[in-house]
């Protein structure tokens, strides 16, 4: 017979209480203002560096930005569009700034939902030449790729998983339900 004794009940009680206590200690760091470590404690900066106090801490800069659960904990696309940040588009006077508002729907995704690639979110930050023709050919489907290659740091994985939201966020890209999608595959009309 496996009967729970009073001793075990007490043990469960205290263990759960301990778990709650540990969670309480961690929660303020997981959500809210304390989610970025100060530079002196981030494991990369030397706390004894002579100029450490002259550098901006992440929390000071990013606390008010639209929040994300992953990456830098910031929704950078929203931060830009909603005016939280106004990053310069160029430092050289002659640079042409192009933003393209055109979606691509890619259907060769196996069992996963189709991928919707928004040019706008990407060109608000990047220049066309950052991807074309260096990583992706401009022609639809001209660059075959697999998820394994992306996970290995190629194609989308050159940025996603390194500097932009990580590849664990499957459904931010795989966002179009094949069973309800009635439109055409590929280049969507420019808005």
């Amino acid at each position: 017979m496996t009967r729970i004794t009073q001793k075990q009940t007490m043990l469960t009680f205290w263990s759960l209480l301990l778990c709650l206590l540990v969670l309480q200690l961690h929660l303020p760091q997981a959500v809210g203002a304390g989610q970025w470590k100060d530079l002196t404690e981030d494991g990369l900066h030397d706390p004894d560096g002579p100029a450490i106090s002259e550098l901006q801490n992440p929390a000071e800069a990013m606390s008010e930005f639209p929040k994300d659960a992953v990456g830098n904990k910031v929704r950078w696309v929203n931060a830009l569009r909603e005016g939280y940040i106004e990053p310069r588009t160029n430092i050289l006077p002659g640079t042409q700034i192009k933003v393209l508002d055109m979606d691509i729907i890619y259907e060769r995704t196996g069992d996963q939902k189709y991928v919707l690639f928004p040019h706008r979110a990407h060109t608000e930050w990047l220049d066309c030449s950052n991807c074309h023709e260096r990583i992706f050919k401009e022609k639809f489907r001209a660059t075959p790729m697999t998820m394994m290659e992306i996970l290995n740091g190629n194609y989308c994985g050159q940025c996603h998983g390194a500097v932009s939201f990580p590849l664990t966020e499957c459904y931010r890209c795989h966002s179009v339900n094949p069973s309800t999608f009635k439109g055409k595959i590929g280049v969507q009309p420019t808005k």
Binding site: R88, T89, E124, W125, L126, D127, N130, V163
Partner: peptide, 10 residues
């Protein structure tokens, strides 16, 4: 926060 990717990478 201060520059878009394209400034450095382009």
């Amino acid at each position: 926060i201060r520059f878009r990717c394209k400034v450095c990478h382009s």
